[in-house]
Design a protein around this nucleic acid. Structure first.
Length: 275
DNA sequence: CGTTACCCCTGGAGGC
DNA sequence: TGCCTCCAGGGGTAAC
């Protein structure tokens, strides 16, 4: 389920338990996820201190760079990844692929589909890492607003929905929040980007920020559960207005929600409210 | 430059 | 019960 809000909720939930902790070892139970898991991680990580956790798009960046020989643990949750803190000695279950062993507990990565990633980047700076260097603007940063969106959409002839999901322009918007934000802005996902005027770009930028903030706030309420549980998924999801609701009534006007495919992904929208 | 297709992988749902 | 197909919150790359 991880789009930007879920990744951010994980970051905020884990931060107080990870920051300041020392790494005592690692356990890798598979050789690769999306990318090969680096070998010799135990050697390199043991003894390092975790400073903080940052987020860039949907990547979690665990900062262990303060010490000599330190660096950054780069995590991506893919389609099905989740992180939780479990007690030392807790038995790994199916799809628990990686453990970061700490002094007081264990950070455990579960990812049934294995589309996630776990990489190590040695050194102080992380921004120039090849997976991060070309990422676009953070939608919750000051750079992202209606004017920016208006500029970026000029002379772009692709539909707005796949544009929103292009992480070279804008990071963190996945398939759910793209549909949801467009609904809240009253803009059809099929509209060509260049045909969206300044006023609508303003509305869309606000809808994106509001939708992400609301989801983070809602996830935050269950973060303790998410982080501590070693049982169920413990994830929370705001109920969606259009996503995964094809044929059901639009919450605003009652029209049946439409489903189309764009760039191989399902798109949900209300053909009355979104023009 | 834009768009599509396919790939990585497992599991759940639904048809027969 | 099984076997088949399709679908799923991501993203990287290659081909047209």
């Amino acid at each position: 389920m991880p789009e930007l809000p879920e990744v951010e909720v994980s970051r905020q939930g884990l931060l107080p338990y990870l920051s300041g902790q020392r790494i005592t070892g690692v356990v890798a139970r598979v050789a690769k996820l999306r990318h090969p898991i680096p070998t010799g991680l135990g050697q390199r990580l043991t003894g390092l201190n975790i400073e903080t956790i940052q987020r860039r798009g949907k990547y979690l960046l665990i900062d262990c760079a303060s010490t000599r020989g330190g660096g950054w643990l780069i995590l991506h949750l893919g389609m099905s990844g989740s992180l939780r803190l479990v007690p030392l000695g807790s038995v790994a279950q199916k799809h628990d692929h990686f453990d970061l062993l700490l002094e007081k507990n264990v950070l455990r990565l579960r990812d049934p589909r294995r589309f996630g990633a776990l990489l190590w980047h040695e050194g102080h700076s992380i921004d120039d890492h090849h997976l991060l260097a070309r990422l676009g603007v953070e939608p919750l940063s000051d750079t992202f607003n209606g004017d920016w969106l208006f500029t970026i959409t000029r002379r772009r002839r692709l539909p707005i929905k796949p544009l929103l999901m292009d992480n070279r322009l804008l990071v963190g918007i996945g398939n759910i929040y793209a549909s949801e934000s467009l609904f809240h802005a009253g803009i059809s996902p099929l509209r060509l980007a260049e045909q969206i005027n300044r006023q609508d770009c303003q509305a869309l930028a606000e809808a994106i920020r509001d939708t992400l903030h609301a989801s983070i706030a809602a996830g935050g309420s269950s973060v303790r559960d998410y982080v501590h549980s070693d049982g169920g998924a413990g994830c929370y999801q705001l109920s969606c207005a259009v996503y995964d609701r094809q044929g059901q009534p639009c919450p605003a006007c009652g029209t049946a929600i439409s489903l189309v495919r764009q760039a191989g992904r399902s798109t949900y929208y209300c053909s009355e409210c979104q023009i």
